[in-house]
């Protein structure tokens, strides 16, 4: 295969990574932005989304598409409700103290991980994608008669991967509309900027916190449901998304949603491209070096406002 088609293939693979990462990281960014809570258990909510997706689809064995649609609808809600309960029972009692909530969410991380190991077991289990047509992609070449299209061997993507990219873009657009156009979004942004003044103007801040924590975890779970037909569900799968989400959130600027999405694109695409042309290890090294550079030269992130 020539360089051009090869690069396009790598870019598409990177776009799938970027789409899932953008969803996961925006959940983390939302929770940190509004609540000032560093949610170390975020990756476990992702893992729980994948494991529950396997569980829900296993009810409807033989009806892959139906089972997957059901998982897509109810799993993020299940994980979101669980996270909201964790907020009310644990984080609220710590008065959302920044340091103590880090320790508490580490505790939640281990509880979720070990309970999953005890119930679901140590196996990695696949989920059948609802549809998975292989689509050959065209490339252009110079012929005697001018530009012409041809189909290079090996340049293809599955319809499911394209759907993942589309779904992630749709959900992120909906999240953006929620934050900027709705009354609920206004409540979240007011709470983010000044908790006491939000209370003084009648915003039920504790309910907003429970909702935001649930929404953040729900986004991670949704990302996991989308990726599990490609990746398989495993009780230790939460580590990578947590690390990459932190990298993305730091590069994008803590709490900035547009910054988070752009950083996810940057990290996801470069991960795809570097993994294809060099090695996945080099891709992780580059991402970590980038974080170090951002922290040294622009600690507030590429899009974060510097906080006094």
């Amino acid at each position: 295969m020539d360089f051009g088609p090869y690069l396009m293939l790598a870019t598409l693979e990177g776009a799938v990574t970027a789409a899932v990462l953008a969803l996961t990281a925006s959940g983390l960014a939302l929770v940190f932005g509004v609540m000032r809570v560093v949610n170390v258990a975020h990756g476990e909510f992702f893992m729980l989304g994948a494991v529950l997706a396997w569980w829900v689809t296993s009810w409807l064995d033989g009806y892959a598409a139906l089972g997957f649609a059901l998982a897509l609808l109810i799993v993020p809600v299940m994980v979101g409700v669980l996270a909201a309960l964790a907020d009310v029972t644990v984080l609220k009692r710590l008065s959302y103290d920044p340091e103590r909530t880090i320790v508490a969410t580490i505790g939640i991380l281990y509880i979720l991980q070990q309970v999953t190991l005890m119930t679901y077991g140590p196996d990695a289990r696949p989920v059948t994608p609802p549809f998975n047509t292989r689509l050959a992609l065209p490339w252009v070449e110079m012929a005697d008669t001018g530009l012409s299209l041809y189909w290079p061997w090996g340049l293809s993507i599955t319809s499911y991967k394209l759907a993942v990219i589309g779904a992630a873009a749709g959900v992120l657009a909906a999240l953006w509309l929620l934050m900027t156009r709705s009354k609920l979004g206004l409540m979240m942004r007011a709470t983010e900027q000044d908790r006491d003044m939000a209370l003084a103007f009648g915003i039920p801040v504790e309910r907003v916190y429970a909702l935001v924590f649930g929404l953040g975890a729900g986004l991670a779970a949704l990302a996991a449901v989308l990726i599990v037909p490609i990746q398989q569900a495993h009780y230790l799968m939460g580590g990578d998304p947590l690390l990459l989400s932190f990298i993305v959130v730091i590069i994008g600027g803590l709490g900035s949603l547009p910054g988070t999405v752009l950083a996810a694109l940057l990290i996801g695409l470069s991960d795809g491209i570097i993994s294809v042309f060099f090695s996945p290890t080099l891709a992780k090294i580059m991402a970590t070096v980038l974080v170090a550079l951002v922290l040294v030269f622009r600690p507030q992130g590429l899009f974060g406002a510097s906080r006094a």
Partner: peptide
Amino acid sequence: RRLFGELTVGQNLEVGRFS
């Protein structure tokens, strides 16, 4: 004053009307 600095004037007044 403690306004919601990142919100517009209109949005600050909308928060005032929530109650």
